[in-house]
Amino acid sequence: MKSPIPVLMLTGYLGAGKTTLLNHVLALPGIREKRLAMIINEFGPLGVDGSLVNAGAHPKYELNRGSVFCICIKTDFIKTLVAIAQDVKPDLVIIEATGVADPCDLGQILGTPPLAQAFTTWANVCLVDAQGFVQTAAFLRTAARQVMWADGLVVNKGDRVSPADLAVLQPILGAINPRAPQIVVTQGQVPEAFLEGLVHRPFQAPGSDQPQPELSSGSVQTELPVDRQAFLEAVSGLGDRLLRLKGTVVFKEGARFMEVINGRVLEKDPPGQNTRTAFAVIGWKISKEDLTAAFSRCL
């Protein structure tokens, strides 16, 4: 019986740099010599990712119906994999999955009868945008679930954040997925050895009804003036548990646009005329209720 075809899966939120990473991976010596097939999908402008991927002889299959693992596109995905197994018989299949793909479905799909004998998962690599992960994951559950399911985490855009920000982000990623090794890169330049060292481990994730892995978000709105000192004390009091804050705060002395990034407080003139306070917050290891309640004393 023929050996199953390995599948390398790339996940990550839109804008994390998956296409750049894919182009880099395709150029790696150990990958370049293989016969490849690629499945490319993105929820967004049709075919953009596909057209950016380096030209080459690799058969490419584009799926464009929302999430690659949304049940609605499962049919196309299975048909594509069956066609690859029958017609292409490659050495490796690379799947660039949409940013809104829930990776827990990959094992389920690869386990369906027509595919179970033909494919095996090499590794599930999740690309994390060092700049935008926290904001995204707090709202888009899938971003955190992609990290949770990964066999390896590539933290991209490492040059765009400070070492202090990385020092906050990496423990968060480690808490969401303690099994996956992490590597910080720029421009998707992941070393081949990192990919070769990855081992796929079947993972039983918590159900989708379970709470997010300790990331929370909320918003605070009020028509009343805010006490600046109390506001800053609330920020300070939350400490590491407040990852981000962004929005307009109308202090007694006037409106300001406030931003807090990992404890650093920035402020500037607000855009337009603002007469009410409205800001969003993202917390770590704190409930939405406690997070928003922390600001109640300054209102």
Binding site: Y13, F43, P45, G99, V100, Q135, A138, F139, K246
Partner: peptide, 10 residues
Amino acid sequence: GTDIFMKMFD
């Protein structure tokens, strides 16, 4: 598009 997820915070 998926910018909506970033805008939910921004």
